[in-house]
């Protein structure tokens, strides 16, 4: 199906997921105050390392970040078509190489993976080496900052944690907020 422009309001679709419907539709937590950092992703480092390491050094392990635009080498991204295996509604595609890329705008969430290691979930709009403007899920470990530093606005998420956990409804692991644990 291709995009369409219409004068009539379309009817939204309700999809059926493989798991049991969770009656809690909004999982939210809050902190009493936002802490902000202006971060520069330095040339030669990956997007993943450029976010995770400097923020860890100042005690930030959970954050919402805005990547304000810049050049990367080796960008790969995924799109999200229907899952042909039927395990979930959609599944990420194989990585699509975009080469030397200008990231127009990106958002990245910093949390913890299921095994406790840092996790960066990033979506962005990019201008690829071939000149196309594309968008999708960015593989942050393959993206290497090009010649110039790239500014990032960081909003630290304090007083709670973002952890990847298996979500039975969608049958995939997802980042979800949890109250802080005392023993990590």
């Amino acid at each position: 199906m291709k995009r369409v422009v219409t004068t009539q309001l379309p009817r939204p679709r309700t999809l059926i997921h493989p798991g049991r419907f969770n009656p809690v539709r909004i999982q939210s937590l809050r902190s009493s105050k936002g802490r902000h950092v202006r971060l520069a992703l330095l040339p030669g480092v990956s997007l993943f390392d450029g976010l995770v390491k400097p923020l860890a050094d100042i005690g930030i392990t959970f954050a919402s970040t805005t990547i304000l635009g810049g050049y990367f080498e080796g960008v790969q991204y995924c799109v999200a078509p229907p899952d042909q295996q039927g395990r979930a509604v959609i599944a990420y595609s194989k990585p699509i190489p975009a080469g030397h890329t200008y990231m127009i705008f990106g958002n990245a969430t910093l949390g913890k993976s299921i095994n406790g290691s840092p996790l960066v979930h990033c979506h962005a709009a990019i201008c690829t080496e071939s000149g196309e403007v594309k968008g999708g899920h960015i593989l942050t470990e393959t993206c290497i900052v090009s010649r110039n530093p790239i500014p990032v606005l960081v909003t630290s998420l304090d007083e709670f944690e973002l952890r990847q956990a298996y979500d039975p409804e969608t049958n995939i692991p997802l980042l979800q907020p949890y109250k802080e644990t005392i023993n990590g």
Binding site: N22, S28, L29, R30, S31, P177
Partner: peptide, 10 residues
């Protein structure tokens, strides 16, 4: 304050 949420399908 700052709030974070995961909002569910549909």
């Amino acid at each position: 304050r700052v709030a974070y949420a995961r909002i569910a399908p549909n």
